[in-house]
Design a binder for these strands. Structure first.
Lengths: 245, 245
DNA sequence: CCCGAAATATTACACATTGTTACCTAAATA
DNA sequence: TATTTAGGTAACAATGTGTAATATTTCGGG
């Protein structure tokens, strides 16, 4: 199993099947389980992306199970229960559930809430992922987020140093925004954890900008891309007003 | 503003204040707003970690606002509304809300659900962070996964070069395992995406090992930690059989 | 339009990092 | 033991990067 899968846990077979079928009908991969033991089994076996957990699980207690799962795992859990009093709901949230749905429920609403939780999880994941390796491109310039080089609009590879790459990354990630020296300096260090901070006081940034211009600008003396915003800092932008013949 | 803050948006001042006060009482930083315009303002001004958004916002429509916000932002949103019919709830989830709470609500339950969403967001974030920067330690040697330095068992900081750090990281991550030159070479490049592959043919690795030994070994000529496995490669290990006086 | 102060650019230099090469030593093997 | 082979290391070269000194540009006020 490697496709993200929802695990439906309920000791009532009918209920279990109903939920599973409904979710499958809407395009999800679904596995089912009836006991806590089986949950563990599924989790260690593969990629469970969300657990729909019944609170009253025969001998076992869904709340307890949820608490245990949370100790080791970060799998999102939606509790489902016939107990709908506020204090019962709250104990569900307290043990780390992501949502708490009262039975009987409207299956469409269940679906909506499942989607909401998944959306949240996936979003956070992809955002953080991008932070490190996404592709940046602007005005035809492409940085692959990995190698120390950029592709010019003509498709020519231009090798950069590590430091130059980081500078470019920060600027490309914020096109048309004038960045202050401090912002750039900070961002360059944050960009790649684990470095001695660059001293934002000295002229290091200016020198670096100069070097980068030397590599990516047609005419470094009169930069068309990496421009200076006097009194502010630098900006990566295309001047649309500029009349090109 | 730099502390994570909850933004409460409701055109009814009493309601707004009530929610804000309650959340503040429970340790949250809270800002309030009455219109969509103000939301934008708060978001661009600083770190809003969660928005509690009333669905019926005078002239404006919370659902629409939510949809718009989602287009650009990833801020978690909990919708609050007097409209509690299933289809109304569902339209809330559809536009990307993380939760939908019906008025009137039990403030404790609101709090629980706010916490549930924040927990989810923060968890995902910190997990992804760790993915890149976990801590390695072995036999008293600690590498924090970030800075280019290690702590010796005596707690002394030893500065390393980038390359040395990567080598150590690979070795620390596989203690007691003899690694071939190829494995080390590959791992060092994979470790940090975006590099020209190190040529595993030359003697670069040997030289690097020598340099690292010079920094971390008591007696570099007779290494006690970073040992050579002749015909294989290198290994980071403590020889327990060795009788130390 | 010119001057001077402030901001930015550039140049020269110092130093660290890192790979290569050549030569040396130690270990394995016949 | 002689020979062979793997690993160690010194010296060098190519880069990368920051600092400091110097040059240049920009912009507001005479």
């Amino acid at each position: 199993m490697s496709v993200p899968t929802i695990l439906v846990v309920d000791d009532d077979m009918e209920m279990r099947q109903m939920m599973a079928q409904y979710l499958r009908k809407h395009g999800f991969m679904v596995h089912t389980a009836a006991t806590g033991r089986e949950i563990q089994h599924h989790i260690s076996a593969g990629r469970i992306e969300l657990i729909l957990l019944d609170v009253m699980l025969g001998e076992e207690n869904g709340i307890e199970l949820c608490k245990e799962l949370r100790r080791e795992q970060d799998v999102p859990i939606i509790l489902v229960s016939a107990l709908s009093a506020d204090h019962q709901r709250m104990s569900g949230y307290e043990v780390g559930a992501d949502d708490y749905i009262a039975k009987p429920f409207n299956p469409d609403l269940l679906l909506a809430r499942v989607k909401a939780v998944l959306r949240r999880v996936r979003r956070s994941a992809s955002l953080n992922y991008r932070r490190n390796t996404s592709l940046f491109s602007f005005a035809g310039w492409v940085y692959d987020g990995k190698k120390d080089e950029v592709l010019s609009p003509d498709g020519i590879q231009i090798a950069l140093s590590q430091r130059e790459t980081r500078l470019l990354k920060v600027l490309l990630a914020n096109p048309h925004v004038p960045l202050t020296r401090d912002e750039i300096t900070t961002a360059m260090d944050v960009t790649q954890a684990g470095d001695i901070n660059m001293d934002s006081s000295g002229r290091a940034l200016d020198v670096l900008v100069g070097r980068l211009r030397g590599k990516i600008e047609e005419n470094p003396k009169n930069p068309a891309l990496l421009k200076t915003e006097r009194g502010v800092g630098y900006i990566f932008a295309v001047d649309v007003t500029q009349t090109e013949i």
